[in-house]
Amino acid sequence: MSREEYQVPNTGSGNSPAIGGGSFNAGQRDFSGESGGGVIYYICGDCAVRVPLERDTPIRCQKCGARVLYKERTKRMVQFEAR
């Protein structure tokens, strides 16, 4: 598949040939319950600011415009052996 043929997977439409419309689309997941009103925070790769992203907003830092965003670290405690 060339670069031009590629279609961005779209969970909303459900008729995209690229993802075949299988069980993946059967149960549409609602993300609004998680992380308060569908807003998920990411970290900007350029300016390290916390970027709130909702569904369908472009993946872009509101402050500096960088397109590389990282997931935040888990809020859970992680246990390690000091060895």
Partner: peptide
Amino acid sequence: AVETVFINNNTSVIQDEVLAHRLGL
């Protein structure tokens, strides 16, 4: 000596495992 490390947050450049090992020593 330090045997177990419970990391709530570590956003430094040093990885959790390496940090835990350093603390143990």
